[in-house]
């Protein structure tokens, strides 16, 4: 018996789904940790900045970034490839649309659109913050980047807050279908787990989206006043 991924895995519909799900799962994990880490802003600006400093000081960040960029690119390319295949499989629709559970839910039907907007958001988000204005601050004698100041500046602009709200809601919708579907694609779903995974998926999406949304809202309405 040999352990290998033989020819045909990557080109098959199911193989693509496994990889797309894997890449999606990496990002689902990332957004949860990103959201949780950012909650430090509710404690203090110093705690928030120190967390950011700790994350970016070692070399491990490069490995993590490499994994994130790699999985994001593969997720996007697999999505494009599968969507093209799916469209080719059904070139003409029906004159009348079905109703009830026979129709694909909005969340599952618009994964591509949500994903595309979230991708644009990720890039713009990196430009705004990672490559944004570099302020400095000193926490306990250590000089570090003052990301908190940049964040407060950005989220005082209603346009930014609105754009973040829209994108984070879309991220939530994307996760609500995606997280549960990973279990299905990986073959981990069975009759007993099915309802649990669906609820878990929804809870995951709501926690991530609300956790993130709380941050610009808090800055806009509360922190910026001080």
């Amino acid at each position: 018996m040999s352990l290998s991924l033989p020819h045909g895995f990557l080109t098959s519909t199911i193989g693509k789904k496994y990889l797309m799900g894997l890449a999606g799962a990496v990002w689902a994990g990332f957004v949860l940790s990103h959201m949780a880490g950012n909650l430090l802003m509710f404690i203090s600006a110093d705690a928030y900045n120190s967390y950011g400093h700790a994350l970016t000081s070692g070399n491990i960040i490069y490995a993590i970034e490499l994994i994130l960029v790699g999985t994001l690119i593969s997720h996007v390319f697999l999505a494009i490839s599968l969507t093209r295949q799916n469209r080719a499989a059904r070139t003409s629709g029906y004159a009348v649309s079905p109703r009830g559970e026979k129709v694909a839910r909005f969340g599952s039907k618009t994964m591509g659109v949500q994903g595309s907007i979230v991708l644009v958001f990720i890039i713009s988000h990196l430009i705004t913050f990672k490559y944004g204005t570099y302020y400095e601050t000193t926490v306990n004698g250590v000089v570090m980047r003052d990301l908190y100041r940049l964040m407060v500046e950005v989220f005082q602009q209603p346009g930014y807050v609105f754009w973040y709200l829209v994108c984070l809601v879309l991220l939530g919708v994307h996760l609500s279908h995606g997280v549960g579907s990973v279990f299905q694609s990986f073959g981990l779903m069975n009759g007993r787990y099915q309802p649990i995974f669906r609820k878990l998926s929804l809870a995951y999406a709501v926690i991530v989206a609300l956790g993130f949304i709380a941050q610009p809202i808090y800055i806009y309405f509360v922190a910026s006043l001080g």
Partner: peptide, 8 residues
């Protein structure tokens, strides 16, 4: 096509 778990 491929499965997108819509359940239809």
């Amino acid at each position: 096509g491929a499965c997108t778990s819509t359940g239809s």
